[in-house]
Design a protein around this nucleic acid. Structure first.
Lengths: 234, 234
DNA sequence: TTTATTAAATGTCATATTTACATTTATTAA
DNA sequence: TTAATAAATGTAAATATGACATTTAATAAA
């Protein structure tokens, strides 16, 4: 016996929801679809899983092709499998969500794919069920970032507390008290203060911090509480 | 154009990790595989996704076939897609994890599938990558139950606080202080006290409670904290 | 040199939550 | 009536949280 009989084979695709932060706005990377149907419409970056490729490998390949970036935060999100989600042919989509430092993004490669960063709040409508995928990724980002230190993946190696706070405020579409925010973030023990200031946004300047990588990796799965009243935000 | 060209089609299966609680032990429902390869070895209950069936529909169908139960807690967990995970033919497995009240389980149907409940701690080794799937489901159960009231899905409609505490203790393989446990659970406002006692385990008897369904549904997604020091348990 | 301006950094107090720990209560059987 | 058993409940100290205002460092203007 070398095949299962009487069963339907289908295409399996990966689609990536890629988030970035430019210092002010939370953004998503989209591409113009290059084939019919819906050619020319905005879409998540994706591709079919190849013969000898795992799902994770496929997602990493797609991400590398689009951004030129390797070793970015990438996590499987959810699989979508409505029978008619792709009108051409039955296709299961395994979605991944990714967080990356927008400033490291290799723009030259993006031209091959007609890729563009959109502010999440001004995102165009997407093909197929991609809008639903983004919605789920956004919910997961909020959920996970309230409990685990994932938002650091969106910042450069060096960042200031006010920058970090802006990012949290953008993700949760709210404002936090800076005294309490600073106290809570510093109390995690995740941050190392550098002897260097960012003078970009004030005369006094704000100290740069970087992640304590050891502490970060060792405690990543711990449940912290980054967000004061997470329930009220949902 | 009515097909995508030059792409590989694969089988897509759903596999279900089904948890139950008998009052003492946390259990998992397994079946003896009925076809080659690995015929006769223990396996998760699963099946191939059919032509006009969504992933959720496939999982519900499989669960109904095995347990006779409809409308149980069922949640998509993760998709597994290593190229060689099934030696016969490339198959993507979308896993679902399910929590059900073991006492409602229709045993007569299980005979068709040679299904059996195993205590999680004494589970036999499973075919393919099913062991890894169970491990992930167990981690997710612990994670989610520390933040959301999902363990109630494992109990009957009526239950006592000591029974609930036993369940938590079994899931986390630890002991909790009963005064603090009771206070924390009651403070959620999820429980309604009934005018009836369970005399099964003491002379005094323990009051039965049931879920306040409205409150449960409205607040399910809120992040609570059922477990005192979840970090130390991971 | 002094002063004004700006955002960063920090402190305090009241309240809520958490943890550790012991006694009383209801029921049944001896 | 008493002994036995598990259920139910209380309290006090420590810690975390949330609301709120002042001081500080650096630059630019007077």
């Amino acid at each position: 016996m070398n095949r299962y009989s009487n069963q339907v084979r289908m295409l399996v695709a990966v689609d990536c929801i890629i988030f970035g932060f430019d210092g002010t706005e939370l953004k998503i990377l989209l591409v113009k679809r290059s084939l019919e149907p819906e050619k020319g419409n905005w879409s998540l970056m994706g591709g079919f899983v190849q013969k000898d490729e795992s799902l994770n490998e496929a997602a990493n390949r797609v991400l590398l092709q689009l951004t030129g970036l390797d070793k970015v935060y990438l996590e499987q999100l959810h699989s979508f499998g409505e029978p008619v989600r792709d009108p051409i042919e039955r296709t299961i989509s395994v979605t991944y969500f990714s967080l990356l430092d927008l400033t490291k993004y290799k723009q030259q490669l993006s031209t091959d794919f007609k890729a563009e960063w959109f502010p999440l709040r001004k995102m165009p409508s997407l093909i197929f069920d991609h809008g639903e995928m983004v919605k789920m990724a956004r919910a997961k980002l909020r959920y996970k970032a309230s409990l685990h230190p994932i938002l650091f993946e969106l910042l450069s190696e060096k960042f200031t507390i006010p920058q970090l706070q802006s990012l949290f405020e953008e993700v949760y579409e709210t404002l936090f008290d800076k005294r309490n925010f600073s106290r809570k973030i510093l109390s995690t023990g995740l941050l190392l203060k550098l002897n260097e200031k960012d003078k970009g946004s004030s005369k006094k300047g704000a100290y740069y911090f970087k992640l304590d990588k050891k502490h970060y990796k060792a405690n990543f799965h711990n449940i912290l509480r980054f967000i004061p009243n997470p329930n009220e935000l949902l």
